[in-house]
Each structure stands twice: as structure tokens, then as C-alpha cells.
Design a protein around this nucleic acid. Structure first.
Lengths: 113, 113
DNA sequence: CTTATACTTAGCGAGTTGGCTAATTTTAAA
DNA sequence: TTTAAAATTAGCCAACTCGCTAAGTATAAG
């Protein structure tokens, strides 16, 4: 195949989102970013965390790769913008599955495969 | 300190849940489990996945440690039960944060620290 | 031009993850 | 009692994660 299908891209995208949410520091960054109105410079974010600035940069990179934040450079400052819609759409979308009733009968009499 | 505080326990619990959700196979197990009514044997789960049975067992162990499934042994079969409430409470609870308005003014004139 | 500021990139190292096969355990069937 | 089935545990290994420090880049200030 020459290119991944749309469905494969979405699965890959979802995987990046959940992997991004797997670390407490990254979840924390998103919360702080939201609390501060959805926009902060890299320095303001780094200042608020115990880990070193390069470590924070790498966390931000993963959030960016997952599409959960975008960057906007201006002068020598680099701002990060929360992509709230994507967070709630992807993670919330997956989670919403579990509000739905089950697809099949829990215990069918003909329990084939 | 002799024991972790309640808040620390909850943070630790949330971390286990999000780490459990970080792998596509584990998310898939939860979805299949829900679709089949919330209860399946280890064998039925293992059959539906490409990876080996021991690998699936380990995924199930992580889901169990996160409190997302519980086990019920009966004879030589081991059933896994979906803990749907915990999944939606913990993951959904964190996500719900982002439906709330921001805590502080996005761009206060006195941009201190 | 030189220096400081704001960040990122490079690269190291300990620890974790996730795949596998082989071996073991437990219970049911013959 | 022997054999088969269901599942887990043990242990190996390559790959990834995430912390760090040091070095580099780009822009603004002096």
C-alpha cells in the first residue's frame, strides 16, 4: 500500500493522544495551560514544573505531536496553545463508547467463538 | 510520613488508569469487553488478539492494577469483568476539567510570574 | 559587535515496556 | 491415574521513556 487509510490515520492519532496523556507531567501541563486561558510561553510552563527545561520541552513536543497543543513563535518567545477541541474529541470520543449499551447479548445461548 | 494521603492515592490511581489506556491493545480489550457485555474469560480475550496469550495476560494484569477490570475465577476458567464506572469516573473526570472555564484571566495586565 | 535571554537539540544512562518462548500451576476430562 | 485444557509465571531481549547536563540556535538588548 502507498499510504495509510483514513481509519489507520485516526487510530494512529488516537494512540499518540493516549500516549501523550500517559505521563502526569503532560497531563499537568494541559491542565495548567487550560487554567491560564489556553496560551503560555515555554518559559512560563517550564518555570511551573520541577523538571529541567529541556525535559519540559520534550513533553511539549509529545503534546504537539499528538495535536494537543500548537506552537506560535514570536520574537524569541515560543507560545504553546491548547487544542482543547482535539483533546475532548479524541479522548472523550473514545470514552463515550462506554456510555453506549453493549453491541451483543452478554451471554447468548449459542456461545460460538 | 507513614502513609500516602487520600489525594496522593487518587493521583497514583489516575496515573495507573492513564498508563493502562496508553496501549492500543489494552484500549481494545476494554472495548471488546464492553461490547460483549462486560464479562469474558481470559481465553476468549486472548483468542481475539494477535499477540500471544502471555502477552495478553500481562495487559490484563495492568488493567487490573489500574482497577479497570476485576477477575473472577471459576474452575479452570478466569473471567475478567469490566469496571466501567471506574473508567468513566477517572478518565472522564479528568477530561471534564476542560469543559470548565479557565481559572484565571487569560492575559492579565499585571503578568507577574 | 558583544552579551544576555529564550528556547531547542544532542546525547547519556537507568529504568520500564511489550513482544516472545518455555516452564509451571491448577482444574477438568478420559 | 494419566492426559488435556486454561491460564499464569519466569525470564530473555530490543526498543522506548524520561530524567539529566552540555551545547547549539535565534532573537533582543546594550
Amino acid at each position: 500500500m502507498t499510504h495509510p487509510s483514513r481509519a489507520e490515520q485516526e487510530l494512529e492519532a488516537m494512540d499518540l493522544v493516549f500516549k501523550a496523556l500517559a505521563h502526569a507531567s503532560r497531563r499537568h501541563i494541559l491542565v495548567v495551560l487550560h487554567a491560564r486561558g489556553g496560551r503560555m510561553t515555554a518559559g512560563d510552563i517550564a518555570k511551573r514544573f520541577a523538571c529541567s527545561w529541556p525535559t519540559t520541552t520534550r513533553h511539549l513536543r509529545k503534546l504537539e505531536e499528538a495535536g494537543l497543543v500548537t506552537t506560535a513563535k514570536s520574537g524569541r518567545e515560543n507560545s504553546y496553545l491548547l487544542n482543547q477541541d482535539r483533546l475532548t474529541a479524541v479522548a472523550g470520543g473514545w470514552l463515550a463508547w462506554f456510555q453506549q449499551p453493549a453491541l451483543v447479548n452478554p451471554k447468548t445461548p449459542s456461545e460460538t467463538a
